[in-house]
Amino acid sequence: MLKTIYTRLKQGYRTNAYPVADVVMPAPYRGRPMIDQSCPPEVKKLCADSCPQQAIAADEGLLDLGRCVFCGMCQRAGDGKFIRFTNRFELAVADPAALMTDGNIPDLAAASRAEYRKLFGGSLQLRHVSAGGCNACEADVNVLNTPVFDLARFGIGFTASPRHADGILVSGPVPRNMQAALMATYEAIPAPKVVIAVGSCAISGGPFNGSGEVSKLSHHLPVDLFIPGCPPHPMTTLHALLAYFTGKIPPSGQ
């Protein structure tokens, strides 16, 4: 017992101060893109051709956040003149149309629904379903329960039984073999219920887009919240949950 307390004292207090204070990501992190639509069309085309995920619409000058895996190949191909990734982690959107972005990602708090704020703003229990992910999204959702993020302090938790849940959080590109289990889990959750897509796989099929065995989540369920990334950084997910369900978080932490 004494040893446990002593070790705890040596380990120190590790929970970050978000959202009271901002969290600054290290420079190599690639988050919210800055897109210069005025750059020459040949640069846009170069960037679009370099993208492994075919996430760039060169003519429109838009990036599909749902498909993007934030690998940075476009930034290098265009020398940062067209797309440059910043270290801001606020990426989630409620409107699927906003996934095709010119860099101005709408304020998520403003998109939160009054009904959800009232019902889930103080307490939100989610059932997670891993549907074909690579286990990176799963791991970085799980990490929200570690002392650094300490999700429980916001009244948000993950529950084992769908009967106790307010919604479903899904990662992965929904393989054929998981469809039945996913739908059964969703059906078991009492209404009203929210649906959250975490990661490029759940939003668009991600790296597995094009495989005959997978289909994106919105083909199966009405998705309320899209959280891009491969996987999304835990801060991206934390921001998304707080902004969308409490409507209170500043749009980009300035």
Binding site: P52, G132, R176, C201, P207, F208, G210, S211, E213
Partner: peptide, 23 residues
């Protein structure tokens, strides 16, 4: 979790193949 990844790896571009492999 079967995503038919082995066949996908033979169908995609080289750059995409690296992304699929990591996934």
């Amino acid at each position: 979790q079967h995503r038919d990844a082995e066949r996908l790896l033979t169908q995609v571009s080289g750059a995409r193949r690296a992304v699929v492999a990591e996934g």
